[in-house]
Amino acid sequence: MSADFVTPSPAAFHGRVTQTRVLHSEWLKLSTIRSTYITAALTLVVTIGLAIVTCWGQSDHYAWMAPDLKARWDPAGWSQIGFTFSQLSIGVLGVLTVTGEYTSGMIRATLGAVPERWPVLEAKAAVFGAAALVLSMIGCLAAFYAGQTMFAGKHIGTTLSAPGVAREIFGTAFYVTLVGLFGIALGALVRSTPGGISCLLGIITILPLVARGLPENWYNALAPYLPSNAGTDITRLYHTPHTLYPWPGFGLFALYVAGTFAVATVLLKRRDA
């Protein structure tokens, strides 16, 4: 160990913090953690696996299906059933992306390097959102084609160019990505892993179930506007009563996520780290 090391080698750096550099830093954080890859692999396997099993089962049921059900037959929708899992895995990973920094104490180093703070949350959302979108696109498309293979023998499948199908498939990927971003926003808001995961699961999966306990007209009036109900309207081919149309529903869910982000950003700036 020599004294020369304290002073950096010649041609020293004179960097300053820029948004691009913070993005690079956040990408390094996401890509140097093993759980990112485990979650990604698990999400793909389960999404595609569920598509195969579900579509195989539905192709068997189809023959005995009531005519009204056949009229609303949604072969692309059945292949996307895996989103029920991927919304949780991606959402939880989103929570952990933020709360992992708080539980480890890394956040102090992070905010020490970027004291402006909000570029960190922005970069986390951008990097995680991009990664989640790519992963979801791959997962949803692969699940779609795997599922249609199971229908092919009975000629009850569909194609990506059929009306509404592309919207269903890519919409599912968009929805899962937004749940991931919702996880980031909730994680930044709550700053604790158990708290963040509880909030996410509570809002995405439990809230719609609890709402079912309401009187019928209350439920019909309220349920369409619950975050995950609104967000998943885009994943179905046919519109059903007491739900929003695909894009308005998706837009409403996006607003919920954006609102949570706004609050998290303001608090990040104001709270002690």
Binding site: F13, V17, V22, K29, T32, E101, S104, M106, R108
Partner: peptide, 24 residues
């Protein structure tokens, strides 16, 4: 400010790289 300010799953080198990246 505190010794354990590192994600336990990240290597020492990667930890420093993430901080270094913010300033290029």
């Amino acid at each position: 400010l505190q010794a354990r300010a590192v994600h336990p799953g990240r290597s020492a080198r990667d930890h420093l790289r993430t901080l270094a990246a913010t300033h290029g």
